[in-house]
Design a protein around this nucleic acid. Structure first.
Lengths: 316, 316
DNA sequence: TCGCATGGCGGGCAATTGCTCAGAGGAGAG
DNA sequence: CTCTCCTCTGAGCAATTGCCCGCCATGCGA
């Protein structure tokens, strides 16, 4: 087959190989012949296409067991929406399985006819969701960040969820220009006094839908592991009953926000409990069960995307 | 792993196996262990999940060569929209490759904020698109058929595109209660005089977007092969310069509708040329090149989803 | 109750895929 | 100009997958 076109991007070849493999169902030998390369190169291209996330896989069948868990969680915690992804292998990254399902929930919000303001947090699960989103122009919606992404060392973008989502949707987006943790409550307040900051905070607080990860406050709490707080500070929070964290706000086992000097310096927008608009928690994994349950109990989140294993633990 | 749930649907197991395989990336041996079945059964379940269409694969990367073809087609035929899917193996079903791409275009129409009336034709390509659509509730839109689906022998649903789409979208839908071919022009006219029929026809004619297949009029024309017209009638049409067919209306090489006694009996809604709203032709394959080019030339369709090979032929 | 058709199940084998390893080629520093 | 480092390449091999075949259970008619 004469493929006379000059393919400048190396990803083009990968995409083409992935297309032939996944859509065309061709064997790697056939792909190699079609593309005029060696079998090994074809295999590398296909594997690259997968690794680069060029290929998006969705399952159209809702499994009965998951539907039952969704119904039970919805009833028990009076949720506005709930999605349970099938269990993956016990050792696998729990964020991976729920990413696609979370993306479907997000896309449903995008499908609403009215222009939406959508607030997003950060974290591994949100990042996974962003990667699974189907690219589509949605310029009528606005995406706003609930939390700054400036790390203690000044570097940006740990998991830059906002930019990735806005990029896929070509939507206007509003980063939160505030440090995750300021040096003092005064510094935080001075940020919040700035007019542009206030505008973003206002937008976030009146979001039509909110998507957040849920952080746990055990000994390997993300806040501590990512260097936002010290071990001493973590221990102190644990002593005060910290159970979880949503958008940089820490709450106890009943889902009530804690108030400490440290928390007074944290930059995230505080989500008002018991919102009448969906606040979707996206989280799974055995370590997060307590944090998720607390957030559900306190109605900090009123919708949930999780996996089967976590759902069972939440109901146990 | 104790999976104590009773899975009533056999598809549930297939879906779970497919999930573990495609999302979890597990080997069939691991899946077998996880599900507590033999390796062979796991393999059968995974293969079943694929065969039943439970798994939807999309590619997120637009290949440069295809983008160039899209740009050139758009320019040459003054198209409102154009998408070119990468080439598949020469022998493969051309409808398969373009189905996913067509579904993306359709979904973009669904994403419009205003309630849309979407008209659809029939055929293999449309059917493929329907299968690739992502299920999502879109009750604000209406789907209307351009053409009846009553075969000469009275059986319904050759490729019942309308129902499949409406089913996935839970959208109101309007079938066209008219035979594909009536026995006489008078019979056709009497159908069209019925108020419910008129209502559907009106709706179809003012659709905000239209999706149609393109039929060719060679010796193996679908109209003839599916038994809607006889060989003699086909020959007669060919003599009169029939080049293609869209929604049961036949046109010549310059894309002008033909008028014959036979055509006067055909039940499809005639699409007005040069519409100011998108009329998307979904078609690919070497046999269809002439029919597509004619439809483009006559501006019966003003948007196109096709594959690389066909695109090259159209531009040659 | 028996015989036969049907359909699912596991065993085994051939095809396909993924991975590792040694070597080639190219860019950049000295 | 040469050396080194780094990446990419192709070969070979082990793991994985797909498929065919004989077997068994179940259901239906005689």
């Amino acid at each position: 087959m004469s493929r006379s076109d000059h393919d400048p991007s190396p990803l083009d070849d990968a995409a083409r190989a992935g297309w032939l493999s996944y859509v065309g169902g061709m064997t790697q030998d056939q792909i190699a012949v079609e593309l005029g390369v060696s079998r090994q190169r074809a295999q590398r291209l296909v594997s690259r296409a997968m690794a680069e996330g060029l290929i998006r896989v969705r399952l159209d069948h809702r499994i009965g067991a998951c539907l039952r868990l969704e119904a039970e969680l919805t009833r028990r915690f009076a949720l506005m929406e709930c999605r349970v992804a099938p269990a993956l292998a016990p050792g696998a990254d729990p964020a991976h399985g729920i990413a696609g399902v979370a993306a479907e929930v997000f896309e449903r919000v995008l499908a609403r006819p009215e222009p939406q303001v959508i607030a997003v947090g950060t974290g591994r699960a949100l990042r996974g969701m962003a990667d699974e989103l189907q690219p589509q122009p949605c310029i009528r919606h606005r995406i706003v960040s609930l939390i700054g992404n400036i790390a203690p060392d000044g570097s940006a973008s740990f998991f830059d969820v906002l930019m990735r989502i806005a990029d896929k949707l070509q939507a206007p987006h509003y980063p939160m220009p505030v440090p995750v943790i300021s040096d003092s409550a005064e510094e935080r307040a001075s940020f919040y006094r700035l007019r542009p900051v206030r505008a973003v905070v206002d937008l976030a607080q009146r979001a039509d839908a909110t998507f957040v990860g849920v952080g746990q406050m055990g000994d390997d709490a993300p806040l501590y592991k990512d260097g936002f707080i010290t071990l001493d500070e973590l221990r102190d929070l644990q002593r005060q009953g910290a159970s979880g964290e949503v958008a940089g706000n820490i709450y106890d086992a009943s889902g009530r926000y804690l108030e400490t000097e440290l928390i007074g310096r944290m930059g995230g927008v505080r989500i008002a409990p018991a919102s009448d608009r969906p606040v979707v928690g996206i989280a799974a994994g055995p370590t997060k069960v307590a944090a998720i349950r607390a957030a559900l109990t306190g109605r900090i989140i009123n919708a949930l995307v999780t996996d089967e294993t976590t759902a069972q633990a939440l109901l146990a």
